[in-house]
Amino acid sequence: MKTFTYEKPATPEAAVKDIDTSGAKFIAGGTNLLDLMKLQVETPDKLVDISRLDLAKIEEREDGGLTIGALVPNSDLAADRRVVAKYEVLSRALLAGASGQLRNKASTGGNLLQRTRCYYFYDTAAACNKREPGSGCSAIGGFNRILAVLGTSEHCIATHPSDMAVAMRALDATIVTLKADGDRRRISIHDFYRLPGDTPQIENALEAGELITHIELPAPVKGKQEYRKVRDRASYAFALVSVAAIVDVQDGVIASASLAFGGLGPMPWRNPAVEAALVGKAPSDAVFEAAATALLADAKGYGSNDFKIPLARRTLIATLRNVTGA
C-alpha cells in the first residue's frame, strides 16, 4: 500500500473542498477501495473520510418517493420497512450481494461506485485499460468467464459488479451530488454510467471531486417485483446474470415493465427494447422470447463467457413467467 494522508471533514461542503488533488479519494465503508489500495490497483495520495457525515438517513418525500443518504449502510437499506414494502426488488438485490459483514460496512453511494471484478483489473502485472489507460485488455483473448457480453468495446469487457445498482436502474433512481464549487446536481441513473468505448477508465458522470450525497427513488410503481441473481455459489459471489424485474399485468395484458440486468454489461443494463417487447402484450412464452431476443440481439461472447447469453435468455424468460404468473 502506498502511504497517504487522511482528512476527516465535518460537513459535505468541507469534504468536497478537501478533495483538492487529483490523487485524492473519498472513503466511506472502504469495502472495495481498501482492498484495491492493498493491491495498489488504487493508489490515492489522500483519503477524505466521509463515513461520519450526516448522510445516513432514509426520508420519505412528499411525492411519495424516498431519499436515501449516500452513507446509509447496505444492511440498513435492505431492512428498511419502506424499502421492503414498496421497493422489494431493491431489498432483495442488496441482500443478494456480498456478505453480512460487508453489507454492514458498505454505503449506498459507494455501492454505486464499485469497481469491476475483472480478474485482470486486479492483477497489476496484466494489461488493463481501465487501470492503466492504453495498456491493453488482457481479458480479451484471456479467461473472461465473469465478464461482459453487452456494451463491450475492443478496449474493455469488464462488468459492473453491483446488485443494488441493477435494482436502482429498474427503479429509475436519481443520484444527487455536491460539486467542489458547491453546486448540486441531480443525475438520472440512466445517465450516470458510461460505456467503456475507448475510455474505460471513465466509468460514470461524476466530475473530479464530486460527492454523491443522496439517491432518490421515485414513488413506487405498480407491479410485481423480483430480483433473480444467478451465481456460481449460493452466497458471496458476483452475478453471472441477474435480472431486476418490475412488471404489472392488468386485465391479462402487461401494463408496464421495468427490467434491468446485472452481470451482462459494463454498467447495470437496461434496454427499452426489452420493455417494448412486453408492454401491451398478453404474457406468453413467445412474448418473453421476444423480450430475450431484444435484450441479447447485440450480445457478443468472448469465449469463456459465451454461456452467459443462453443463461441470460433462460433466466429472463423464467423471471418473466414468475412476475406475470404466466
Binding site: Y122, A125, A126, S138, G142, I146, R233, A234
Partner: peptide, 28 residues
C-alpha cells in the same frame, strides 16, 4: 466450484484470491 485457472499466455493464475477462487461458503 473450486478451480485454479492459469492464463496460458503468461503463466499467471487468473483467480488467486477468495473473490474468484470459490471455496464453499456456509450457504453452499
Amino acid at each position: 466450484s473450486e478451480e485454479g485457472i492459469v492464463d496460458t499466455r503468461t503463466g499467471a493464475f487468473v483467480n488467486p484470491d477468495f473473490g474468484e477462487y470459490h471455496v464453499a461458503v456456509n450457504a453452499d
